[in-house]
Design a binder for these strands. Structure first.
Length: 331
DNA sequence: AACTCGGGGGG
DNA sequence: CCCCCAGAGTT
């Protein structure tokens, strides 16, 4: 990784926020882009929300971006542009939890704090044969204490980096390389051939299904857009006029102006194109999306919505469901 | 304690 | 289809 060995707390913080619940391969390009645009926390703090969200577009978990902006400005405005060097100080930053505080603390400041991420949980659960679910309170306590007992207090950064690298390359989730593992003689999971049974996790609930019908209104190359403000999925990102349904809606109904409930709207079938269904799979939701693109001659105004040129559209962030649609429409 | 929050990649 | 990812915040 490009930031390995780096001690700049800003770069470590940025990389760790980007990598929360995100694979290194996926986050890498985003990290490079952010550092290229904002080499310091002060430059990040002075950027506009839209600029930053646009750079984050497509990475998901957008509250991370919101907290990133908040924390950058907090450090710039209230802390003189200097990151806190204690665990308590780091934990007080929005978006910085136990893992990220330990990562910044050990890597940037040499604090003797053990990181506990998905890699560490898997390594410890397998090696010691721990059956406690890692996502329950008791399990988190147990693994946190164990990790802290094991850390090499003389070189915490090196230890933390090593155990995560080990989990990512040897003690992998699938097909762990036990045959060449230094610990295969004493590892409980390997001895019992139960590598796949660790770590134990509590059962996850099944995702809910939602049906999103978007009306893409176009007037003289401008599109009608709104920013999602309600808490929930895609908060702060932009979208088109949305009607959400609890089940699939018939095509013929979608073409009727009355379906959308917009005063003054009329849909000429000759100027309307209905997309195929986009199936957008998330961890906790299945979203079925369809887009009705309508060119109108008579401009309508809707409370909260804004007409934007394609130039302006390019500067704001959309969820992947919508960028995929836009990319399809371009082609 | 349970829920919510994105998106992508691999088997 | 399933899994999981250098987790954190809210309810």
């Amino acid at each position: 990784m490009p930031w390995k060995g780096i001690k700049d707390p800003y770069k470590i913080w940025l990389s760790e926020i980007i990598l929360q619940q995100t694979r290194v391969e996926q986050g890498m390009a985003y990290y490079e882009r952010f550092i290229g645009n904002f080499p310091s926390v002060d430059l990040l703090a002075n950027a506009t929300d839209e600029t930053i969200f646009k750079l984050w577009e497509g990475l998901g978990y957008y509250s991370r971006c919101r907290n990133l902006i908040h924390t950058a400005r907090h450090i710039h405005n209230n802390l003189g542009g200097v990151f806190p060097g204690t665990m308590a100080g780091l934990l007080s930053l929005k978006g910085v939890g136990d893992y990220t505080a330990a990562a910044i603390g050990s890597f940037a400041f040499g604090l003797p704090q053990a990181v506990v991420d998905g890699n560490v949980l898997r390594v410890l659960a397998r090696y010691f044969g721990i059956n406690n679910p890692v996502d329950e309170t008791a399990g988190k306590m147990l693994f946190g204490k164990l990790a802290q007992d094991l850390i090499d207090l003389n070189q915490p950064a090196k230890y933390n980096q090593a155990i995560m690298d080990f989990g990512a390359t040897v003690c992998k989730p699938m097909q762990p390389r036990c045959f060449e593992c230094h610990f295969n003689k004493t590892c409980v999971a390997n001895k019992e051939k139960k590598q796949s049974e660790y770590p134990v996790k509590s059962p996850k609930k099944q995702p809910r299904s939602r049906w999103f019908y978007y009306l893409v209104l176009e007037h003289q190359n401008n599109l009608l857009v709104i920013q999602r403000k309600d808490k929930g999925i895609w908060k702060d990102l932009h979208e088109f006029f949305l009607k959400e349904e609890l089940s699939a809606t018939d095509e013929s109904l979608i073409f009727e102006a009355g379906y959308w409930g917009i005063p003054g709207l009329s849909i000429d079938v000759g100027n309307a194109v209905l997309s195929d269904e986009f199936i957008h799979i998330l961890t906790h939701q299945r979203i079925y999306g369809r887009f009705l693109h309508v060119r109108i001659d008579q401009k309508v105004e809707i409370d909260g919505y804004t007409w934007l040129s394609s130039n302006e559209i390019d500067k704001i962030a959309f969820p992947r469901l919508i960028t995929k649609y836009l990319e399809m429409k371009e082609a």
